[in-house]
Amino acid sequence: MLKDITLGQYYQTESLIHRLDPRVKLVGTICYIISLFLVNKIQGYVIALIFLAIIIRLSKVPFKFMVKGMKAILFLLLLTVVFNLFLTPGETLISIWKLTITKEGVRVAMLMAVRLSFLIIGSSVMTLTTTPNHLTDGMEKLLNPLRKLKVPVHEISMMMSIALRFIPILMEETDKIMKAQIARGADFESGNLIKKAKALVPLLVPLFISAFRRANDLAMAMEARCYRGGEFRTKMKPLIYQRADRLAYLILIIYLVICFLAGR
């Protein structure tokens, strides 16, 4: 059961967006989010909506996958809307008991709802069209200038990709240990929260020991294969900007300019 989970939420298909350089997608998503918070007129949001719709269309990912991401933040979304609706001071629209809805409140609440949903959908476009591996690669390359500030960029990205590789293995191991402990009479289901947390100890201790052992083995295997950090290393799949990527940057800039001019 635990074995089948896929990491991130990559949706495998062939599309223009899938083929883009991960750096373009990362920068694009960040710029899009910034644009959402910069504009505050209806026109701006219409442009943001059109832009997002075009991207989703181009990505060939079914829309229902984007909405999936929304479910997770539905509660947060509702909370934000309710708070903004009732707590924004201004011209009273309706007043029930002690609660008042103001004209400004309605406006801010709607604004926040739109911003948040666009933000979530926008970033799921990125995670749906880019493999976690590609994302770490893109991040490494984008953050490369930070190396001058002694930030271990290569090491961080290596750790991330190793973590991604080992998550399914450790999941499987958790499953195995859990079954082994259940067979010995361990009870993970009943009792209150504290009791349940305590029941996890016989699961976590062997898991940690095994994880450390694996880490030790892996480190040795990496050394045996001449791994010595990021220096001198070449890439099997280097990231090189293609024409489509440059074009995408250009479109992004045009979008940002239009958004800024129309939406402020």
Binding site: R165, D217, L218, F232, K237
Partner: peptide, 26 residues
């Protein structure tokens, strides 16, 4: 242990790991 010595998330990337470390051309 086969699980504890594969670094890549795709077979070909794992095989490429050694040559990458040696600084071989792409």
């Amino acid at each position: 242990n086969p699980d504890n010595q594969i670094i890549g998330q795709v077979v070909e990337e794992d095989v490429g790991f050694g040559p990458e470390n040696l600084g071989v051309e792409t």
